[in-house]
Simulated scan of single mutants.
Amino acid sequence: MNIKSMPEWKANSASEWLTEAEAAQYLRVNLLTLFQWVRERKVPAHQLSGVRRCVWKFLRPELDAVLDPSARAAADRRQQ
């Protein structure tokens, strides 16, 4: 299967993942604020097991939904 035959979301998914620092910069907040939002479930995050500590990854479309409330409502309706 080549990239042209893959759905657009799969072809772009590798570049859609952000590290903790990248996500904080993308949202224009301090890294500690981002971690607080993750704890409060204000921002969707994906936990990976780290050797020394918890590592979080973020999907750019999910962060976009947090920034745009109308997009988040549409995403919630799609998941139901």
Rank of each mutant, 00 (worst) to 15 (best):
Leu67Ile: 10
Val51Ala: 12
Val55Phe: 02
Ala11Val: 06
Glu40Tyr: 00
Ala74Asn: 03
Leu31Gly: 00
Ala14Ile: 05
Ala73His: 00
Gln80Val: 08
Arg53Asp: 11
Trp56Tyr: 15
Thr33Glu: 11
Met6Ser: 10
Ala74Asp: 04
Glu40Cys: 00
Asn30Thr: 11
Asn30Gln: 14
Ala45Gly: 11
Ala71Trp: 02
Leu18Gln: 09
Glu16Val: 03
Asn30Pro: 00
Glu8Trp: 01
Ala11Cys: 10
Gly50Ser: 09
Thr19Leu: 07
Met1Asp: 02
Pro61Leu: 10
Ile3Pro: 00
Tyr26Glu: 10
Lys57Leu: 15
Ser49Ile: 10
Glu8Ser: 08
Ala45Gln: 06
Asn2Thr: 09
Met1Glu: 05
Arg52Thr: 13
Val38Tyr: 03
Pro44His: 08
Asp76Ser: 01
Leu32Cys: 00
Phe58Met: 05
Ala73Ser: 03
Glu20Ser: 14
Tyr26Lys: 03
Val38Ile: 09
Tyr26Gln: 07
Ile3Lys: 11
Pro61Trp: 08
Val38Thr: 06
Gln47Glu: 15
Ser15Gly: 04
Val29Ala: 04
Leu32Gln: 08
Asp68Phe: 07
Pro44Gly: 05
Gln80Pro: 01
Ala23Thr: 10
Arg77Pro: 00
Pro69Cys: 02
Glu8Ala: 08
Cys54Val: 13
Cys54Asp: 07
Thr19Glu: 07
Pro44Met: 09
Gln36Gly: 04
Val66Ile: 12
Leu18Phe: 02
Ser70Ile: 08
Ser70Ala: 14
Glu40Gln: 06
Pro61Phe: 09
Arg53Ile: 00
Ala14Glu: 07
Leu59Cys: 00
Glu40His: 00
Ala21Leu: 14
Ala75His: 09
Gln47His: 12
Ala73Leu: 06
Glu22Asp: 12
Asp64Lys: 02
Asn12Thr: 11
Ala21Ser: 14
Leu59Ile: 00
Val43Ser: 06
Thr19Ser: 15
Gln79Ser: 15
Ala75Lys: 05
Leu67Met: 15
Leu59His: 07
Val55Tyr: 04
Glu22Trp: 02
Ala24Asp: 07
Gln36Val: 05
Met6Tyr: 06
Phe35Ala: 10
